[in-house]
């Protein structure tokens, strides 16, 4: 367990020192969300209606940028080999790294989402719900994303490939994330079921996704 927290701590420290990755994700999030109203026109009613969807989709796109780097640095500088000889099974290594990814990417993007919501005229009562659903849904994004990061380590064109691989796997998270916020906005009573399913998806991915990621990592180490 000590080794686990050492690894999480190191990844947080690296993210803090290298800084760039979080900056790029936040910057990309901002760019996508500002570009869309420029393309769609300044119709505030339209924007506030589609804001939950835009914020979620842009969040996923911003996360995709960083997923390729999740295991890549450790793979290239030989750290992954040493991690594999450590006391933790690779499954736990995958959990630790996904957790650190969530803390350094999922959380900052979630915190930024309400600010971008202002640009899209998101109704005020939706902010709490938006942050809540994103907190519940982004773990799934980081943990499922780790599978993509592990699969594409030795692939050519890893960046584009990871987007293609992750798109179908992110559909349920995206669907229920948007559904929960929209339902809360329209007051249709559909919020709770969608929110709970989103939580369930996150919990299931925290348990299951590292298993797949670890299998992939073992093959990459061969």
């Amino acid at each position: 367990m000590k080794a686990f927290w050492h690894l999480v701590g190191r990844d947080l420290l690296l993210a803090w020192r290298e800084g760039g990755a979080i900056g790029v994700a936040l910057g990309f999030y901002l760019v996508v969300v500002t570009m869309l109203p420029l393309g769609l026109g300044p119709d505030l009613n339209l924007l506030s209606r589609i804001a939950p969807g835009l914020l979620w989709v842009a969040l996923l796109l911003a996360t995709l940028l960083s997923l390729g780097r999740l295991f890549e640095m450790d793979f290239e500088d030989g750290s992954l080999e040493v991690l594999a000889t450590g006391p933790l099974p690779l499954e736990a290594v995958a959990v630790a790294k996904s957790l650190a990814h969530w803390l350094t990417t999922g959380i900052p993007l979630t915190v930024m989402a309400p600010v971008l919501g202002l640009l899209l005229n998101l109704p005020l009562e939706a902010y709490g719900v938006l942050v809540g659903t994103m907190l519940a849904g982004t773990p799934a994004v980081s943990f499922i994303g780790a599978i993509g990061g592990a699969l594409t380590l030795r692939a050519r064109r890893g960046g584009v490939l990871i987007a293609l691989l992750m798109l179908p796997l992110f559909v349920p998270t995206l669907q229920f994330g948007i559904e929960a916020v929209s339902a809360a906005l329209t007051g249709s009573g559909g919020f709770m079921p969608a929110f709970l399913i989103l939580v369930a998806i996150s919990l299931a991915s925290v348990v299951l996704a590292p298993l797949a990621a670890a299998v992939a990592l073992r093959f990459q180490l061969q």
Binding site: K2, A3, R10, R17, D77, G78, E81, G86
Partner: peptide, 24 residues
Amino acid sequence: GHANAVKPSLTVAENAAFWSGFLG
């Protein structure tokens, strides 16, 4: 291995402390 498993943005002591802690 061929690669050193040393993180360029961490100091030498931090690198050592991490592997020491991780490997017990």
